[in-house]
Amino acid sequence: MHSLTRSFLAVALLASVSAAHAHRTWLLPSAAQVDGKDPWVTVDAAVSEDLFELGANALKLDGLSITDPDGGSVQPNQTSTGKYRSSLDLKLAKSGTYRISLVSETAMASYKLNGEMKRWRGNVADLKKEVPAEAEELSVSTTLGRLETFVTAGKPNGTALKPVGSGLELIPLDHPSEFLAGQPARFRLLLDGKPLPGLTVAVVPGGVKYRGVLKETALTTDAKGEFTVNWPTPQMYWINAGYPARVNVPEGQPRPPMPAKRYNYSGTFEVLPQ
């Protein structure tokens, strides 16, 4: 009976995960490279099914962190949250490259209360508050998520590209403000600061709504955790990785239990024509 309950639990948890994954979360900068006397950038943060079409929900900007070209932390000049997107405006006061990140730590909990199965999903910080102390058979799975994009004013530099060292992150080995269609770009995937080999990442171009076909590319990191993207066309791209890798279970087969800790990364990169 106990094991039955547990496998039911696992199935229920996964169902909610896949429902959540049916949508993509993303940041979209107005440009990756801004020149001129008074450079600004606007970044949208949203969740939607098609990249980068607004249409599902705005993302909260609670976990926003911006690193300036000297490695310091800066605040956006203004933010707003609407129905479909949140936006931030940032004056690029210093010359060089900025990293804009949205970090989240979400939890999924399932438990028994008075003999009834309950599920809860939300911020890790609210877990203790939301799940009653008398809950039994509590099972929690947390996801550390990172959304990221890089923006440069004037001459690009590399200080803001340095790894944070926590969770899943993608380090561009070629400069992300200088990507061109038809040229290769190398990346390194890190988990808690260490290279992560053998993980498959998805490279998805925006604009599927008007193109029709998805044109997603699957790439697997090598022994050094690295991979090369050959940008086929100029546009905005979304690179996503999840760890542990998603398990595709054939129809009717039992699903493995949810890992206690999961990591997710999505970066947005602009590719210009040559």
């Binding site: 994954h21 049916a22 099914e49 599927v208 076909v213 998805l214």
Partner: peptide, 8 residues
């Protein structure tokens, strides 16, 4: 048409 996919 495929969820999180394309259309053709």
């Amino acid at each position: 048409s495929r969820e999180a996919g394309g259309r053709e």
